[in-house]
Simulated assay, not measured.
Amino acid sequence: MTASAATGARRTAPARLTSGQLPRFIEPMILVGVAVVVGVVLFLLTRDFNAGLWLFLTAIAYLVAVGVASSIVENRRKATDRVVRGLVVSAFVLAVIPLVSTLVTVIAQGAQVVNWQFITTVGGTQFNPETLEVTYVPGALQAIVGTLIITGIATVISVPIGILTAVYLVEYAQPNNPLRRAITFLVDVMTGIPSIVAGLFAFSLFALIVGPKAFSGFSASIALCVLMIPIVVRSTEEMLRLVSPELREASYALGVPKSTTIMKVVLRTAASGIVTGVVLAIARVVGETAPIFIAASFTDAFNANPFSDPMQTLAVMAYTNYSFPTTDIAASQAQAWGAALLLVILVVIFNLIARIVATVFAPKSR
């Protein structure tokens, strides 16, 4: 009886299905504690504070501490999960730090010079014949106008070519078509082409047509087209492939021609992604410096004619004022930071437009 009772007790004893659990906020508590300890030890050893070394050692010590604590209290699987999650967060922070640092620096430096007068004034050196003094007037109107004109022309040329090319690749060309393979190969090559090569191509092309003095905004637009077209083709192609084949078949079953089906069904369904890709392509090329510097050169004079004479853009303005300052170095650097801030604001506006357009043209919202 005693042995039977003992056996029954062992059988009815509940099995342990769960392990221990660390407190909910243990990870931030360990992080703060490790950061303080590492900071104190570094200060005692070096008598100095190195932010980069402190962050690196804190991350290593945190991963070790959280892994050991989880292994003791919980189990090996949860410890591995916490360590891997810490590695992912550390990689994210490492990637965000340069971005945040650059953004803060641009805003802090550019906000000192950017105002309404800076936006609406043509900047550059001015000579006073009465006092014989050369003064530097801050202003970015010529660069803003040049940026909008050059980017606008590039968009007008690139978007139709890119969308029509994607429509041909997805809707008309057969998978084994040699022309389709050639176009796909060329688009892949153009995607990885250096931007400075696009500028050299555009300048050489117009130098053959109009002569050695081929600097113009239109030449810079052609250089940007070389960079924009593959982005538009790839983004549009992927969006068209996401359109359900059943929609096409339903349209064909109703007797609708293929061209009308593409216009009314396929493109309208993929409009959200296509417009988003186009706007992101614009935001990608609006900050290019090398191709515009080569094809359109730079100038402080106001020029709204894209077919003759050099033209200024915000990216080139920031580069030239910082690399080739005038006698007033502080004013040139302030001009460069102001142009950089306006360029960042312009890119943010383009991305916001992409988000709004994607929401408006989404099939579910319609």
Rank of each mutant, 00 (worst) to 15 (best):
T12W: 08
A13D: 07
A15F: 08
L17I: 11
G20A: 09
P23Y: 08
R24Y: 10
E27R: 13
P28S: 10
P28G: 12
M29L: 15
V32S: 13
V32W: 05
A35P: 08
V36R: 05
V38S: 06
V41N: 06
L42P: 06
F43Q: 12
T46N: 11
F49E: 04
F49K: 00
G52S: 14
W54P: 07
F56E: 10
F56W: 03
V68I: 15
A69M: 12
S70I: 03
R77M: 09
R82S: 11
R85V: 03
L94T: 05
A95M: 12
L99D: 05
S101D: 09
S101W: 02
L103Y: 11
V104T: 12
V106D: 04
Q109D: 11
V113S: 10
N115L: 05
T121E: 02
T131Q: 07
V134E: 15
V134A: 14
A140W: 00
A140Y: 00
L141F: 13
I144W: 00
G146Y: 00
G146T: 10
I150Q: 03
I153P: 07
I157C: 10
V159R: 03
P160G: 11
I161G: 06
G162D: 04
T165P: 08
A166Q: 03
V167I: 15
P175W: 03
L186P: 04
L186C: 11
L186I: 09
M190P: 02
G192M: 02
I196P: 02
G199C: 06
A207P: 04
L208K: 10
G211S: 13
K213Q: 15
F218R: 01
A220F: 01
S221W: 01
L224I: 03
C225T: 13
M228F: 04
V233M: 05
T236M: 05
T236G: 05
E238H: 09
M239P: 10
L240Y: 08
L242P: 11
E249A: 14
Y252M: 08
Y252R: 15
A253E: 03
L254Y: 09
V256H: 05
T261S: 15
T261D: 02
K264H: 09
V265P: 05
V266K: 07
A271L: 07
I274S: 14
V275C: 14
V275D: 00
I282L: 10
A283W: 01
G287D: 04
A295C: 08
F298I: 07
M311A: 11
Q312A: 15
Q312F: 07
Y319I: 03
T320S: 12
Y322T: 12
T327H: 11
A334G: 14
A336D: 04
W337V: 05
L342G: 13
V344A: 15
L352A: 14
L352W: 06
I353P: 06
I356K: 03
